[in-house]
Design a protein around this nucleic acid. Structure first.
Length: 265
DNA sequence: AACAGCCCCTGGGTGC
DNA sequence: TGCACCCAGGGGCTGT
């Protein structure tokens, strides 16, 4: 599920309660984390969360002492929430950290694609990511230059985390509609004005999604309102809000792709 | 560099 | 009710 806006919303919601808390216990029913469950049980208790941020689709928790960093990637169905130990039993919460305020930080993930990493140097994971799309490093000039060097289809390219960090299937489709670009266009076929439009579309849709608390689809990510503002994602066969044409669905890079054949060229 | 195919997992919806 | 099948917001790996 979670793309940049949903992770950002999660960080903003949890930060006030998590920062300053010391981890007192760990329960793990899932072994595909890094390092092993035994090491996590040994290394996490006693450490205090001194900072909480987002990089791409990763939640980044800085821990003291010893400068360890906890990275959490929510995968497709992961959620991070706090709860009282006896509240709302959650059979998908396979990773639970107890905190010194008596509450739990629960990593709930029905599909188990999410991952947690406790690292001495977070750059081993985060170093592979491209620029943050809402930072100065992601400028229209930079994007124009990069696009000229690639001939790959534009949609799978902007979803490549090493190219730009944080964009997933929903916001790729939405950014391309806002930019008026057909998802299969080769990156190096974009004129500078089109690259500018793509840059603007990416920043606008991500900012709008953060403002509205992210996209809630099905039961996966609660609380967001952005799903009511999506213009193409999940709207196959329905009229384009700009021109009335029927939204098309194709498969591109093995992901469903929605676009308006009239507005996006 | 790019792409297809496969894998990791589970749940929900649909059609028979 | 059961069952087969398709779909899903993520990404890593491999072979071409």
């Amino acid at each position: 599920m979670p793309e940049l806006p949903e992770v950002e919303t999660t960080v903003r919601r949890l930060r006030p309660e998590i920062v300053g808390r010391t981890i007192t216990g760990v329960r793990l029913d899932w072994s595909r984390h890094t390092p092993t469950p035994a090491e996590l049980r040994s290394l996490l208790p006693g450490r205090t969360v001194v900072g909480m941020a987002r990089r791409g689709k990763y939640l980044v928790l800085d821990l003291e002492p010893a400068g360890r960093t906890l990275l959490i990637h929510l995968g497709m169905s992961g959620r991070l929430l706090t709860a009282a130990p006896d509240a709302d039993p959650d059979k998908y919460a396979h990773t639970v950290l107890s905190m010194d305020n008596g509450r739990q930080l629960r990593f709930s993930d029905a599909r188990k694609f999410g991952r947690l990493y406790l690292l001495a140097d977070p750059r081993t994971v985060l170093g592979r990511l491209g620029p943050e799309p809402l930072s100065d490093a992601f400028s229209a000039g930079w994007l124009t230059e990069q696009l000229a060097r690639r001939r790959r289809a534009i949609k799978p390219l902007i979803m490549e985390q090493s190219f730009i960090a944080g964009i997933g299937n929903i916001y790729a489709d939405e950014a391309l509609h806002r930019a008026g670009l057909e998802p299969r266009r080769p990156a190096n076929s974009l004129a500078p004005a089109e690259a500018d439009a793509l840059h603007g579309g990416i920043q606008a849709v991500l900012a709008e999604a953060i403002e509205h608390g992210g996209t809630s689809l099905d039961w996966v990510y609660p609380g967001g309102k952005m799903q009511m503002r999506l213009r193409v994602y999940g709207r196959t066969g329905r009229p384009c809000l700009a021109c009335g044409s029927s939204i098309e669905r194709i498969v591109l890079g093995q992901r469903s792709t929605h676009f308006c054949p009239c507005c996006q060229r």
